[in-house]
């Protein structure tokens, strides 16, 4: 066999090379097209500011509501959340989620009972978040990570 490249051989090689290049130009973007939504990871935790500490009276749990939005493709979902900010003294405070640990209804602070009461199945929680009556299996979720930045109270929120 000589090292002379005949016409048929040449056409074969050129066809294969061009085919590979064309396949790659079309194929690689196609793969990117299919997997690109999977490469976008949405943050489901963030620092949330509830405003200056002075806004909240000492000894009385006060509700702070906020919303977070998620974008999936062409669909935007806005979820509302609520937390109770409790100042136990001038400098100490705790932040509870207002979500009942039973079936995720929203609890309300009742001054006359000095308890959080869930309207769905009458779950009761004390001011420290502990279950005092009803079906809830666990105390209210407490946000442990908090800080004060530029005079604003902030907590680290994680979506459950």
């Amino acid at each position: 066999m000589s090292d002379h490249l005949d016409r048929r051989e040449f056409v074969k090689i050129v066809t294969a090379a061009l085919g590979t290049i064309m396949g790659a130009i079309v194929g690689l973007p196609a793969i990117g097209y299919l997997i690109s939504p999977a490469l976008r990871v949405q943050k489901n935790e963030d620092w949330i500011s509830v405003g200056p500490l002075e806004k909240y009276p000492v000894g009385k749990p006060t509700l702070f509501s906020f919303t977070r939005s998620k974008v999936n493709g062409w669909e935007k979902t806005v979820n509302s959340y609520g937390v109770y900010v409790v100042r136990t003294s001038e400098t100490e405070y705790t932040i509870f989620s207002n979500m009942c640990t039973h079936l995720s209804c929203r609890v309300n602070w009742k001054d006359e009972a000095q308890e959080y009461i869930c309207p769905c199945h009458d779950g009761h929680f004390g001011q420290d978040g502990s279950v005092t009556a009803g079906p809830p299996p666990k105390p209210l979720i407490r946000y442990e990570e908090t800080k004060i930045e530029d005079g604003n109270l902030m907590f680290f929120f994680k979506e459950s």
Partner: peptide
């Protein structure tokens, strides 16, 4: 490939095409 993201409903058709054009990698090419 277009049917992967396109939705044939008046609520979503236009938005899903916009998403193909701007949101998905190489959607504009396909």
């Amino acid at each position: 490939f277009l049917t992967v993201y396109y939705v044939p409903s008046p609520d979503h058709a236009y938005d899903s095409v916009q998403y193909i054009m701007n949101g998905v990698a190489f959607g504009w090419l396909i």
